[in-house]
């Protein structure tokens, strides 16, 4: 079986009191030194700091406080509108399922709880998995996703996603093709501002740079509108150009929300996700 795990890390400290793998603001652990506190505040004689205690003119005892790393909840928030049923080199729902599997294994390895919310045009999710540390539940959900045919006419439901996420700040992977207006994306990102949102853009080489040439009756998967395209080298160049421009716009817009988007083109690549977190 192909390796699907990836490593993620946070650039912020969690408030979580549960021990875990991520930097946190909680003291009392055994990791990095945080500060000196009076013995009364943290009565742990093993951490007594001799030099500070002896040098204290008032004769108070000081103890070292070390960081306790914390656990977070990671979420996969999937856009399951009809356009996510696009099958290019690989089907996009299959990529979502792959990513969910990878995230389930990775979060389990890291010790985090993992949840899943799949939304389309309604406020009620098509798929919902509350945060759990049972990796099997997420794997089962990924299996069900593979057989799922998205039909929702839009991604409006993403605006309600925050209702299914925990109140404590977590890491949210927003899996979508981002084929909706930037204004809508802005609303979604604002509603999720409480969380650390990693936008994962699922595109397919077939849609951005098709290799076929000839006549194609393009049918929009969400509103059913049809347009005839005469695919020829000139038009293919313009099509890829459009996608490049769209990519630049997405990057510029999402950078304003603190994260650059992660582009997964043509399938789920765990190393690409790892690189996203650790390189640069």
């Amino acid at each position: 079986m192909k390796r699907k795990e990836f490593h993620y890390r946070l650039a912020w400290r969690t408030d979580s009191v549960q021990p875990g793998a991520h930097p946190s603001r909680q003291g009392g652990g055994v990791h990095a030194f945080q500060r000196l506190v009076p013995f009364q505040a943290h009565p742990d004689p093993r951490r007594l700091h001799l030099r500070a205690s002896l040098g204290d003119p008032a004769g108070h005892f000081w103890v070292r406080l070390h960081e306790q790393r914390g656990r977070i909840a990671v979420f996969a928030l999937a856009d399951l509108s009809a356009s996510m049923g696009y099958r290019g080199r690989v089907s996009k729902t299959a990529v979502v399922a792959d990513f969910t599997e990878g995230l389930a294994l990775s979060s389990n390895r890291t010790g985090d709880a993992m949840g899943f919310v799949g939304l389309s045009d309604r406020s009620a999710p098509d798929f919902l998995l509350p945060p759990t540390r049972q990796v099997g539940a997420a794997l089962k959900l990924a299996e069900r996703l593979r057989g799922f045919r998205p039909t929702g006419g839009s991604a409006r439901g993403l605006l309600h996603a925050v209702r299914y996420l925990p109140s404590r700040r977590g890491l949210v992977f927003l899996l979508s093709d981002f084929h909706f207006p930037l204004g809508f994306l802005k609303q979604v990102m604002e509603s999720l501002a409480h969380h650390d949102v990693v936008p994962v853009v699922l595109w397919d080489p077939e849609e951005s740079a098709p290799e076929a040439s000839g006549l194609a009756r393009m049918q929009d998967m969400e509103n059913g509108m049809e347009r005839l395209m005469w695919l020829r080298p000139a038009l293919r160049t313009r099509l890829s150009q459009t996608f490049l421009e769209r990519r630049d716009r997405l990057v510029a817009m999402l950078r304003g929300f603190g994260r650059e988007p992660l582009f997964l083109s043509g399938g789920f690549d765990p190393d690409a996700v790892t690189r996203y977190f650790h390189a640069g």
Binding site: S83, G85, Y86, R87, D177, H179, F180, E207, L215, A216, R217, M218, Q219, D220, M221, E222, N223, M225, E226, R227, L228, M229, W230, R232, L235, R238, L239, Q241, T242, F243, R246
Partner: peptide
Amino acid sequence: LPLRSAPCSWHALLPADGASRAVD
């Protein structure tokens, strides 16, 4: 149109093309 339909994820990303419209 008498052609097989090809699913397309978002029309807004298809560039406007006069030749295609003429063929259509």
